[in-house]
């Protein structure tokens, strides 16, 4: 049996130090994620999200993907969570426990989540029972390696992504600008479209 051979070579029941560290950090990450989706205090949810995302960054480090780990810390922990906290404050989220943080369909959501978790864990464990990651040798995700591949093979998606970020920036500015001039171009566009008769609202009638 190949499974028995590989298991004997790798030690099926004697995990290595990296595996134990991965398991412990994974439990902490999963616990923080569970608190994020179940807590009734909205600001605490954002702060537990920091713990979960930081735990995932540590998992990247354990998988020798160090550049991804620092990008994760910079972008997710540094900016996305701050944006979410700003959003919570700007929508006047209640400080303290809010009893209506969960909607009425949380039991259906729990059933769906547990069913998909069971199915996916079974499939994944069954598929990768005899697969080991070889973490020895050269580091897979150092900044030099990743920078070289990114700018040799992935230049075109990289540039397209910068255009997408610019479009998202302009879109966010347009969306969050307060009234006034923002209305005039839209009305102009609608009257222009109605004049040429291509407005979708005109086609309905």
């Amino acid at each position: 049996m190949t499974l028995a051979a590989t298991a004997a070579a790798h030690g099926f029941l004697s995990p290595t130090g990296v595996e134990i560290a991965f398991l412990l950090v994974g439990i902490a990450t999963l616990g923080a994620a569970l608190i994020t989706v179940t807590t009734r205090q909205l600001v605490h949810a954002a702060l537990w999200l920091v713990v979960a995302l930081g735990g995932i960054a540590v998992e990247y480090l354990l998988l020798t993907a160090e550049f991804i780990a620092w990008v994760q810390v910079l972008i997710y922990v540094g900016s996305v969570v701050v944006l979410l906290l700003f959003g919570l404050m700007l929508t006047k989220a209640p400080i303290g426990r809010s009893p209506d943080a969960d909607s009425g369909n949380r039991w259906a959501a729990l059933v769906v989540a547990l069913a998909s978790a069971g199915t996916l864990v079974w499939v994944v464990v069954d598929a990768f029972r005899a697969t080991w990651i070889d973490l020895d040798g050269a580091v897979q995700g150092s900044t030099a390696t990743l920078g070289r591949t990114l700018f040799q093979y992935w230049v075109l998606p990289f540039e397209a992504l910068s255009v997408l970020l610019l479009a998202a920036l302009v879109g966010a500015i347009v969306l969050s600008r307060k009234g006034g001039e923002g209305k005039a171009p839209a009305a102009d566009l609608r009257s222009g479209a109605a004049r040429t008769g291509t407005a979708p609202r005109e086609e309905q009638h």
Partner: peptide, 17 residues
Amino acid sequence: MHLAYPAVLAVLLFCTG
């Protein structure tokens, strides 16, 4: 490292989300 560790963790995080 066994590949099942990151795969199972990813599955559980996905279902939490």
